[in-house]
Write a protein that binds this DNA or RNA. Sequence first.
DNA 1: GCACTATATGCGCATAAGCACATAAGGTCA
DNA 2: TGACCTTATGTGCTTATGCGCATATAGTGC
Lengths: 105, 105
Amino acid sequence: MNYSQAMIRSEILKALAHPARVLIVHALTGGDRCVRELNALMNIDQSNISRHLAVLKRAGIIADRRDGMRVFYHLKAPCILKALKCAVEVMKNDASSRNILLQER
Amino acid sequence: MNYSQAMIRSEILKALAHPARVLIVHALTGGDRCVRELNALMNIDQSNISRHLAVLKRAGIIADRRDGMRVFYHLKAPCILKALKCAVEVMKNDASSRNILLQER
DNA sequence: GCACTATATGCGCATAAGCACATAAGGTCA
DNA sequence: TGACCTTATGTGCTTATGCGCATATAGTGC
């Protein structure tokens, strides 16, 4: 694998690497959601939700569809769930160092 | 899922979200490697390799083992490969927007 | 047109991440 | 011990991210 391939992969991972975006992706596994619904679901400023959605869209992870005033978002790449599950596995396999990590921030 | 769970997951994803670290993980799928070998493999300053390794170790993705002067690193969580494969799938499913992404930087 | 709802974006600021360079720390072997 | 090899870390700097706030853009319906 060369560096530019690695760059593309890291772009996608980077798009997922934010707690709010993890929450958004998780919420979208339950079906399409519009910005307002996501906003109600988590305690984050609407403008930031929009920005996080833009990041995920830009990475090709989600897509949008307008319906009247609202814009609904849905997952484009179901494999994303595997990536998130992987994170959970790492967490389980490594409870001790994880605690350290949590302590330090 | 709550915010702190999402934070833990995002920490792990963040650890993977850098081209150099993607390359490192990829290299480690071929077996243990010491810092010098990784350094020879990719064209990155040794001090940065060490730092990237520290990030991955801190996230519980890799572990190290000293052998004489050298420190060998190995993958701790094989599921990481699924996360990387996912990135590839997104890339394939979304070649067009990916091109845009590449153009813009 | 106007008022209203929903979503996106511009801007300034604070903080985090990444880098290159120098150097410290840990280990080997003559 | 001293010369050497390998890996980690301190420092200063630049750039990227994320945030809140205000405001723009888009659509609906009176």
